[in-house]
Design a protein around this nucleic acid. Structure first.
Length: 172
DNA sequence: TCGACGATTGCC
DNA sequence: GCAATCGTCGAG
């Protein structure tokens, strides 16, 4: 069942724990539809969150995060890897969920490479017509199989934000 | 216009 | 442990 933009207009801390176990759906250029089970995500919550790109205010790059939830936020990091995020919350509340892992792939950079995701998706809605969306099925895991831990690669954000357990992943 | 830096990865 | 590699952003 397709997760619509409505679902993504809640607080990121409501959404992020629900995403592990959901399906990332991709319709590639050949018209073939593939499903990847989401295994790991991280929440980035507003301008006050020093690990969130929006902590430095609204810029051309971060403006997508200020859109209403339900669109993709895609950016290039280290000059080589694309990061895939889902914008959440209401308009002008800059939050997003970073999709870190799906099934066999580990690492957010390898994920986007495997799914052929580039900046073309930035700002586009999560919808079938886009070719990239998120769905749920009846195999969604029990709540208590989703574990929490601190986010990765954000040492610069200071101890308070660095230690927030806002990474959510499926237990093995 | 320039320089510093990063929500990563893979090789030394 | 560290280089690769480039868009973004703030300083000059």
């Amino acid at each position: 069942m397709l997760l619509t933009p409505d679902f993504f207009q809640q607080d990121v801390l409501e959404i992020a724990p629900d995403l592990p176990g959901k399906l990332l759906m991709r319709k590639d250029s050949g018209g073939e539809q593939k499903a990847y089970r989401i295994t790991e995500v991280e929440a980035y919550r507003g301008e006050e969150d020093l690990a969130c790109h929006a902590s430095k205010g609204k810029t051309p790059r971060t403006s997508v995060m200020y859109e209403p939830g339900g669109v993709w936020y895609v950016y290039l990091i280290y000059g080589m890897h694309w990061m895939l995020n889902v914008v959440t919350a209401e308009k002008n509340n800059p939050q997003a969920v970073l999709i870190r892992g799906v099934e066999a792939w580990n690492g957010p950079g390898k994920l986007t490479k495997a799914l052929e995701i580039t900046k073309a998706f930035n700002g586009r809605p999560l919808a079938k017509a886009t070719g990239l969306w998120i769905a749920s099925d009846n195999q969604s895991p029990d709540k208590n199989t989703v574990l929490q831990a601190p986010r990765i690669g954000i040492d610069y954000a200071g101890n308070y934000w660095k230690n927030k357990p806002w990474r959510y992943y499926l237990s093995v």
